[in-house]
Design a protein around this nucleic acid. Structure first.
Lengths: 183, 183
DNA sequence: GTCTATAATGGGATAGAC
DNA sequence: GTCTATCCCATTATAGAC
């Protein structure tokens, strides 16, 4: 039962990808930290892209759940609030994972365009739902803006000196996102 | 007077950096499009980093102007609106330039950390001003959120099928950013 | 100012022994 | 499962002729 090594590789890669960036992280560096050689990594993951896919899977699943939930909701203010809250929860629960996409979108696109496309598609569908049925251009823009607000949960740490609790982030950013939609 | 070539190089590099990403764009590719060889680029720019610096200068200047303006304003709702509008204008006037930082933050950091740090610092100072004097944590978060909303001006094109006019963007996103601050 | 040629480095990935 | 050794490739950057 040596899924241990596989997991360890994933953990180390996640940390490096999300801080340094995907492209700026070499397999040599990952292997070094895990305590292996580059070649041994290839026993566990067939390529750098495969490693990224494995790491990113939980986030994709998380978005998908929110999307499934949203699809079964009528577009009421209460439901919008609920969906935004769930999106925010996924972001907070997968902070470093989301960080990979924010730190190095270009690198992810270059290495695994399909993964990136999946994320864009899901973001698109969420924004579409948020905008409501037959939305005006303004409503679409506001929906996108609301989602951008939730991204502040991640950039905040770069801008703020003091730590902010997840509870406060949840509360403030949810209200802020609703404000961006003028709800 | 062959600043022509220098300018042409800058133009091509800007386009490639902002679409493919800084790190994903090789000097060979730039040279090819300009109609030169790689070696000739080095006659005009001493390194890839120097090329980036030259490209990025106008954006740095733009932010600085907004910052100077804000510093001389009292923190009233009208002034907040004004400053947000100016930030948005800078973003719209330098769309592809801002795109460089959004597409490949990690690559920029790796190649020119000081440039990145300058941008972060300026963003920080703008957010600090927006948050107002002696702000609560919530107010700081809302200020960051408001700035993120303005970033929607750039991500919008990835999410929307139809073109949106700059005027509509200006109007809607400005109001949306104010909404994020509950103003 | 632009070229050809080449150095120097580092990356992802594979072969094959153990 | 992990290792050593190597391949292959692209990149940034430089040297020197024209």
């Amino acid at each position: 039962m040596d899924g241990d090594t596989r997991d360890k590789i994933r953990e180390v890669a996640l940390e490096l990808f999300s801080t340094r960036g995907f492209d700026q992280t070499s397999l040599r560096e990952i292997a070094e930290r895990v305590g292996l050689t580059k070649a041994s990594l290839y026993y566990h993951y067939s390529s750098k892209q495969a490693l990224l896919s494995a790491i990113v899977a939980p986030l994709v699943d998380g978005w998908q759940e929110v999307l499934d939930f949203a699809s079964n909701q009528p577009h009421t203010p209460a439901a919008v609030r609920d969906v935004l809250a769930r999106i925010l929860d996924v972001m907070l629960d997968n902070r470093s994972l989301v960080g990979i996409f924010m730190r190095d979108p270009a690198g992810v696109v270059a290495a695994a365009e399909s993964i990136w496309q999946d994320m864009i598609d899901m973001g698109n569908q969420l924004a579409t739902w948020l905008a409501g049925p037959a939305p005006t251009t303004a409503e679409q823009l506001r929906a996108i803006a609301a989602m951008e607000v939730l991204g502040a949960a991640l950039s905040a740490s770069a801008y703020l000196k003091e730590e902010v609790s997840d509870e406060e982030m949840r509360e403030v950013l949810l209200d802020s996102a609703l404000g961006a939609m003028r709800l």
